[in-house]
Simulated assay, not measured.
Amino acid sequence: MSRSVPWQEWLSTGTEAVQEEVVRRYQATPEGVAYLPAMIWGTLQTEAYATVILGQVVEFLGIPDDAAAGVAARMRRQRVLYDGEHRYDVVLGEQALYTDIGGPKVMREQIDRILRDIDLPSLTLGVVPTSARVNMHPVHAFNMYGDEVHVELVSSGLTVTEPAEVALYRKAFARMREAALHGDAAKDLLRTARAFWDGAS
């Protein structure tokens, strides 16, 4: 079964309530999975990066501007990385390291943050190189919380709970993960991106 809720309905009071809902979901799910081809996973975002993202959401959807409160909630969600009770398997596309969110300074700080946390016991982080051969047609970003998948569409948030559909998302994630670089090889991609933003004006 799938359930779609329009963002303008879900975010009718602003971003904070939804961010708090995500915090609760993360706290209740000991193990999570995320695939993001073109942006940084929210639980690894710096405050500056998240401020740009949520500001864009507010402007695009025309919802009440409580972006600062939404960012504060997103920062609280990141505690799960350090509490010793949660584990996350995350795959980013290399493009996520180059999508300009906020300019060079924000991107440098963001990549430094990832390099700082990449070896956390709670985190397995892979990066799919842009030129990688992937045994999977290009797919959108998604997050998995146990037996539930959440997909952020342009107009709505989609929650997938039908077991057969969830199984396809697991299969897709496994293929993206297989194509990703981990450990030192992933750090090399991060450092190359950091050097790019060093040289950007």
Results as ranks from 00 to 15, higher is better:
200 A>Q: 11
175 R>K: 14
24 R>N: 11
110 Q>P: 14
50 A>K: 02
48 A>K: 11
187 K>Q: 14
4 S>D: 08
186 A>N: 10
38 A>Y: 05
199 G>R: 14
150 H>S: 10
153 L>N: 06
22 V>R: 02
35 Y>V: 01
198 D>A: 09
137 H>N: 02
93 G>I: 08
82 Y>D: 13
30 P>F: 05
27 Q>P: 00
18 V>L: 09
139 V>A: 05
41 W>D: 13
201 S>V: 06
115 L>T: 02
186 A>F: 07
139 V>Y: 00
169 Y>V: 01
187 K>S: 13
108 R>Y: 08
161 T>C: 07
181 L>W: 06
185 A>V: 04
169 Y>L: 08
131 S>E: 07
28 A>T: 02
147 D>N: 15
115 L>P: 08
111 I>E: 12
24 R>F: 01
60 F>M: 12
187 K>N: 09
174 A>F: 08
24 R>T: 04
101 I>Q: 13
167 A>Q: 11
157 G>Y: 00
160 V>P: 04
96 A>P: 09
39 M>R: 14
2 S>C: 00
59 E>V: 10
146 G>L: 10
134 V>P: 01
83 D>M: 13
158 L>I: 00
201 S>Q: 11
42 G>D: 11
119 D>R: 15
24 R>E: 15
188 D>T: 12
160 V>S: 01
166 V>A: 09
107 M>R: 01
5 V>M: 11
12 S>L: 04
121 P>E: 04
151 V>L: 14
8 Q>F: 01
72 A>P: 05
155 S>C: 00
168 L>M: 10
4 S>F: 00
153 L>M: 12
126 G>A: 11
13 T>V: 08
82 Y>N: 08
99 T>P: 10
32 G>T: 13
60 F>N: 07
192 T>V: 05
20 E>W: 08
93 G>F: 09
52 V>H: 05
38 A>G: 10
69 A>T: 02
111 I>F: 09
105 K>I: 14
153 L>G: 01
154 V>K: 05
108 R>K: 15
36 L>E: 15
199 G>C: 12
11 L>E: 01
175 R>V: 00
117 D>W: 07
186 A>T: 02
60 F>H: 09
152 E>H: 04
177 R>F: 05
159 T>R: 13
23 V>K: 07
7 W>F: 11
27 Q>M: 14
55 G>C: 07
32 G>Y: 03
102 G>W: 06
4 S>P: 01
1 M>P: 10
181 L>H: 09
63 I>T: 02
187 K>A: 14
161 T>N: 06
36 L>S: 08
199 G>F: 10
28 A>Y: 02
7 W>D: 05
155 S>N: 09
92 L>I: 03
133 R>K: 05
53 I>V: 15
15 T>M: 15
7 W>A: 06
200 A>H: 02
31 E>R: 11
60 F>R: 14
13 T>L: 13
74 R>I: 03
32 G>N: 08
168 L>V: 04
48 A>M: 07
171 K>W: 03
155 S>E: 10
88 Y>F: 15
134 V>H: 01
197 W>F: 03
31 E>Q: 09
39 M>C: 11
136 M>S: 13
6 P>T: 01
37 P>T: 02
139 V>N: 01
168 L>N: 04
32 G>S: 15
155 S>F: 01
117 D>P: 11
199 G>D: 15
62 G>I: 05
79 R>C: 02
54 L>N: 00
126 G>V: 06
79 R>L: 12
18 V>A: 09
197 W>S: 04
200 A>L: 06
36 L>C: 12
70 G>P: 05
123 L>Y: 00
